[in-house]
């Protein structure tokens, strides 16, 4: 009820409800009988048009009237039990949030033994259990596909999780850490520092170490800047640094794209990326199962590989 700035509205609603109920009760009582001269029947309603067109009174059965009373008594019972009047919280203290919590707690208790079983196994073992992988997949389909895609192949700016190429490391512990605490990756913009030509030169050096087609003259010129500036994160040979999430530039995997245009765009404007932390929201068990599923995506063997 925090949305209501004043207590007046509770009284307002309660008054409308109570007056309406009383009004309905009065209406029902007053319309159940009519006073007529003795011997006269209530076979017409008294409404008359065009001199002789009369409305017949086709009475409802008496049991139908009791149904009307029943609805009123139901309303009163409901208002006593439930918080319909705002000013009265209801004698059984029901709230939507309370019911949700109750249902969730019940479900949690039901699932707990299953989760406990998997919590006792390590991530690698979880990744090999069909049951755990099915649970993990459903969790992935709910919480992860918005960025990483239903097939976990990622998208521009969102890593592919199936290729065993990792920004922050692909060991089970690292995957759990990433899902639990999230990650924030940032590359500064070098457009101003290198200048337009300078950026192109560095880009060509990156193409060279990545094993792509490059302009030899520019690559040589760009090498100096790379060795002094870029190497701080990506390393002198461009192999990256998983401790800070700096990508390996010598492989075929690109987070934003490996064309010359895209690399120039990346160096000029920098990149900023963010993965939210899930530990609070999902809890350890779900994170554990998700880690197993993600680990399994790039470590498929035996049954899992065949199923794929």
């Amino acid at each position: 009820m925090e949305d209501f700035s004043s207590g007046f509205w509770g009284i307002y609603i309660a008054a409308i409800v109570v007056i309406s109920l009383a009004g309905l009760l009065y209406l029902l009582r007053s319309q159940s009988v009519v006073k007529l001269p003795k011997g006269q029947k209530a076979d017409v309603t008294g409404h008359k048009w065009d001199d002789d067109l009369e409305e017949y009174n086709n009475p409802l059965p008496r049991w139908w009237m009791w149904l009307f009373y029943l609805t009123i008594f139901f309303a009163i019972g409901y208002l006593v039990l439930y918080p319909g009047l705002v000013v009265w919280k209801g004698s059984n203290n029901w709230t939507a949030a309370g019911q949700f919590k109750q249902e969730r707690d019940k479900k949690d208790a039901e699932i707990k033994p299953l989760y406990d079983k998997f919590m006792q196994q390590d991530v690698v073992a979880v990744s090999k259990s069909t049951e755990a992988r099915e649970i993990g997949q459903r969790l992935f389909m709910t919480y992860c596909i918005q960025c990483h895609g239903s097939d976990a192949h990622g998208a521009k700016g969102f890593p592919n999780l199936t290729d065993d190429d990792w920004l922050y490391g692909g060991s089970p512990e690292k995957i759990v850490e990433t899902i639990s605490n999230g990650r924030g990756g940032q590359m500064p913009a070098f457009g101003a520092q290198f200048g337009e030509e300078g950026v192109k030169d560095v880009a060509n050096h990156v193409l060279k170490i990545a094993g792509k087609k490059f302009d030899a003259e520019r690559a040589t010129r760009g090498e100096a800047n790379f060795k002094t500036v870029c190497a701080a994160c990506h390393g002198p040979d461009g192999k990256g640094n998983q401790a800070i999430g700096a990508p390996n530039l010598t492989d075929k995997t690109w987070l934003y794209g490996g064309s010359e245009t895209t690399i120039i765009e990346t160096i000029t404007n920098g990149r900023k990326n963010y993965m939210p932390a899930w530990k609070e929201f999902l809890g350890d068990a779900k994170v554990h199962l998700l880690a197993g599923y993600v680990y399994g995506l790039s470590h498929q063997e035996g049954e899992a590989a065949k199923a794929k």
Binding site: V33, K38, Q40, P59, R62
Partner: peptide, 13 residues
């Protein structure tokens, strides 16, 4: 004085 009486408007089954 017309003698009035109450007439039920619901039909008894």
């Amino acid at each position: 004085e017309v003698e009035m009486e109450q007439v039920a408007l619901y039909e008894t089954h």
